[in-house]
Amino acid sequence: MSYLEFLGNYSDRLIDGSLITLLQFVLAALVAVAAAIISGLIKLAQLKPLQAVATVYIEIFRGTSLLVQLYWFFFVLPLLGVSLEKFVAGFLAVGLCYGAYGAELVRGAIQSVPRGQWEAALALNMSPAQRMWRIILPQALVIMLPPWGNLMVEILKGTALVALISVPDLMFEARQINNNTYLSAQAFGTALVIYYIFARFVVTPLMRWLERVMARRIGRA
């Protein structure tokens, strides 16, 4: 079978798989951003019990493997009474795992906003919430966006693991096609190229664009 024939026969499945991968990526990224902001802010706040919860979350998810977390979510949580659809377990595990890495980025960025900005907001009689939302977070966002670009690529790559709990994403379809045809180079090679295109020509340019837009909005372009 020539490569063109291969593509003709299996492009439908590869496209379906790619769409699931994109969906998993978007949902996992949203979970990661939410988890990172919440736990990052909690770590900075002076609330001891909550701080301990955030620390435990970050250390557990950063200290173990994504695959272990995924299996735990999918096979163990139901035993404890929480049943998750495999699709949900997939993006939730990936999102929470990388959210723990993102939390450190959020914390570091907020801490690197110059001291004078905090003092100026205080001098203008802003409430703590106003100060955070209007002064500190927009500047922190510009600082942390470049490392988030790398993290987004890691999240995209992380979603490949959901194939192991049978979510029919690109990785899963490539494996199925390989099992049916034994055309490993074609099946896995095509999937590698698709992941590469997503990472290099979709996710990375999108994050760069976001960096520019945000920098312009706070007048640093």
């Binding site: 790559k157 992380g158 490539a174 896995f188 999937a191 590698l192 992941y195 590469y196 990472a199």
Partner: peptide, 8 residues
Amino acid sequence: RSTPLLLQ
């Protein structure tokens, strides 16, 4: 760097 280890 841009492609998943699992696939590799």
